[in-house]
Design a protein around this nucleic acid. Structure first.
Lengths: 342, 342
DNA sequence: TTTAGCACTCAAAGAAGGAGAGTGCTAACA
DNA sequence: TGTTAGCACTCTCCTTCTTTGAGTGCTAAA
């Protein structure tokens, strides 16, 4: 069977109507609302064909039809037109984000919240993927008898602190010395560039502080290893409760449990490293609990490199065109902001 | 009408059975299962009295009876026996918490997770209420052209860092000088002890760095003000989805929305500053969405002072005796751990 | 190829009729 | 006077049956 233009129009009408109403769509509705200039009977024949081709399905014999996963796929790939986004929304995005330009984490958090609010779906963002992290600066600072705080500044601008235990006998000079030696040996290195020789050298220079050093090195390694520790920002989870397809508690619970597994979310978001928008419909997401859900993902960049992912999750019946436009817009805005933060 | 001993036994049996089964309890069930040595008819009379007294209610004429809010209150105040907790659970608690004794936040987070897992309810903990926070140490550390990180160490052991913008012309010496001056003036002070004079003095000493200083002071103030910024740790929210009373999405949504309002949760948890366990049943929580929920709260301490709150939220039909025992146990354990961390 | 007409299907909503659990009342009993 | 057996009554829940209406699929005519 061939997909001709009228079939496309019927398919499009069915999908649009179903997206809008969440009710199975009948031939009459289509013939009437989406003036195709043919009678319901004709539409019926087309729909029957579309069903045979796998683009539509019937919940039961005498109901209307709903789009199948394949149907959505066809729509997204060939029929969908990008929804033009009003300037107003563009303004909201930029205004909101411009307010908090200082800390990356806050910016990301705000962005994901914004995305979920604009769409009424659930938004994910993976925090910057820092790729090759180099160490810019280390400082060991005493805070009380037996405790010190290691402050680590990475090239990406990320700052981290961690408390470590230290022997009580260290004095001001010792702290300065340790900091100096660590910086001397390690500054400017990525984790890949560490090798036993360097660590040996550090240990040689700081023999008395073996225990302390071991802790510090561990902390630094963890920080540099941050790329494997991309943070997930998740906002608007409650929005899915508004969708009629999530009326049974079990489905909600399954999905929420999935939300709590950071690893799973990371996998969902960067399964493809492609640039631009990627849409995954239903089981394309390879996760039982995502059966009825679609995910619109995008990557965002800094200096031409992918550093994070944005995801927007809704029911398979989601408003793809609007979702895509907004994800696109938000991605641009975020990339912009990050560039400005350098 | 007077509450005699047999009425108490009938009330107790009704409540225990309803807690266990979530079904309205009939007179036969009680006469049979909780051998009171009287016939169902007698129990029936007693139940009728208890209903008149407000401790029980009927969903409809010919159903069994369920405890009213007042009934639970009476149970909790007069009838409930503490459930003895097996040593095994005690062991689990201490073992789990001993693993992560370094960072307060992690300890708290772990504790709340543990609490929710042990009980299958939802756990809240308010992070240490640091009361009179004094500043132990401030350090300004350059990280790149035009940016520095302020590190603030409080007397409570809490460390915080924040990025601030600084003029580009500062050199190493300047940073050291700024740190020294700030420490000299501000070390050992609580926010209450700050006064315009001190700030003036600092500004006088660091006239050239007015802008930078303003930012730093602001950061420090925020940190000292941390008491108003108690962090909420919330774990096991999905547990309530297992309760039969939360089968309607609307109730779930209302409750989850409440969970997202940190302020509300704080209010719920420290409405009473009493020591020991406080149980709030249903509408005693003064929140529409909490209608069907009860909250077991406790305070935890450091050096005799209340520094935080623990809460456990379940349906009004919750297993109070077990909940109370576990909250108590966890509270002791947490207090212990915090003492050890000093 | 398109369309009108019509019989057919099926879910959802309502009506009717037990079944069962439980109550409330009364009268008898200890 | 408190306790109990007996019994009619109530109300939800479950099942079954019917009706309704939206929608299909087929056929025959345009």
């Amino acid at each position: 069977m061939k997909m001709d233009e009228r079939k496309q129009r019927v398919l499009l009408a069915t999908i649009l109507d179903y997206i809008a109403t969440a009710d199975p769509v009948g031939s009459r509705t289509i013939a009437r609302k989406y003036n195709l200039g043919v009678s319901p009977a004709t539409v019926r024949n087309e729909m029957s064909d579309l069903e045979e081709m796998g683009y539509l399905e019937q919940p039961h014999t005498s109901a209307g039809r709903i789009p199948s996963q394949l149907g959505y796929r066809y729509y997204v790939d060939f029929l969908m037109k990008k929804e033009p986004i009003e300037g107003e929304i563009r303004d909201i995005i930029y205004q909101t984000l411009l307010n908090r330009i200082r800390e990356t984490d806050e910016l990301i958090s705000l962005t994901s919240k914004l995305l979920s609010q604009l769409t009424n779906y659930t938004a994910f963002i993976l925090a910057p993927f820092c790729g090759e992290n180099t160490l810019r600066h280390i400082k060991l600072l005493p805070i009380e008898e037996g405790k010190a705080v290691v402050i680590i500044v990475l090239d990406s601008g990320h700052v981290e602190h961690r408390i470590v235990e230290v022997p009580g006998y260290l004095n001001e000079g010792d702290y300065a010395a340790i900091s100096a030696i660590l910086n001397g040996h390690l500054q400017g290195l990525t984790l890949e560039q560490w090798h036993p020789g360097i660590i040996q050298a550090v240990y040689r220079d700081l023999d008395r502080q073996r225990e302390t050093l071991k802790q510090i090195i561990e902390v630094i390694e963890q920080s540099l290893d941050y790329e494997h520790e991309q943070k997930v920002f998740l906002k608007g989870t409650l929005n899915i409760l508004d969708q009629p397809e999530f009326k049974q508690i079990e489905r909600v619970k399954a999905l929420f449990e999935l939300f709590e597994e950071e690893e799973t979310i990371k996998n969902l978001l960067h399964s493809d490293q492609e640039n631009g928008i990627v849409i995954k419909i239903g089981t394309e997401n390879r996760h039982e609990s995502m059966k009825g859900c679609s995910l619109v993902t995008a990557t965002y960049h800094r200096q031409g490199k992918v550093i994070g992912n944005i995801g927007l999750l809704g029911p398979t019946r989601m408003e793809y065109s609007r979702a895509v436009s907004i994800v696109e817009l938000v991605t641009y805005a975020l990339t912009d902001m990050l560039e400005k933060m350098r």
